[in-house]
Amino acid sequence: MLDDLGLDAAQEDYSFAFLDEQTKRMVRRAILKAVAIPGYQVPFGDREVPLPPGWGTGGIQVTASIIGRSDRLKVIDQGADDTTNAVSIRRFFKRVTGISTTESTGEATIIQSRHRIPERLLEDAQILIMQTPQPEPMRRLINSEEQARKLHAFARYGLMQVRLYEDIARFGHVAVSHDYPVRVHRRYLSSPSPIPRFDNPKLHRNRALIIFGAGRERRIHAIPPFTEVRSLDFEDYPFEVQKWEQCCALCGSDNSYLDEVLLDDKGSIQFICSDTSYCNDRRVESRRR
């Protein structure tokens, strides 16, 4: 990857973690502001990184701005550590920082992720960075940015509730399965990035700092540790997470988010944990016993 850019490890004159120091400083300022105003989308200057927009450029820039020599990085794509995007982002940071990486949730200090929040509870010293395609939860309902910002400023979120109303009227339940809108610290309506609804409760009073980076949209928002995060709902239709009748075919877990996997051409299927690190840990543990 770096060869394409005319950079290699022997060259001493590139910056630690790829971005130049001024850019990192600018991104850090945006992060500090985002932490100070939970759920508020802070604009930042998006820089070009060796990754196509939409593949996690926002996440990469946030990670690059906060990573240090003592950090251990884990990258998740669709819950797994061994998918293309996860592997290439992890390798990228290994080459531009020289830090160590890990696939285990417990060992990581920084976790960059998309689609999932790890099943294992995060700890105080960990930072979770989410790659966010669309940070504006009301974008599909109003296309004017000016209007959206006004609604945020006046905290008028009736429109979002209308979307839930329409779902209940049409399907009898709220049919939003991913990117389910949340109210952060009883103030800003925020998009949790396209995590399954299943992961929404994990945002509430999480011990780790969670930072959302949207590269193409040039926005950063954050949920500081122990912040109240509520998923929108109705009093008589309370928020619920997805449930499965199956257990994980590999580790037997009955309380994790399951992926349906097609096994052969005859259509046989299996349900397995989407979080590979969690699944591996459980299997190692049960073998030990």
Partner: peptide, 23 residues
């Protein structure tokens, strides 16, 4: 947005969160 949603929106904006009563 459906007719019901149109009528309910002003109520939701002013904080009503009970689907049954909106309906």
């Amino acid at each position: 947005v459906s007719a019901g949603g149109n009528i309910s929106e002003p109520l939701m904006t002013s904080g009503e969160r009970h689907y049954g009563s909106l309906r």
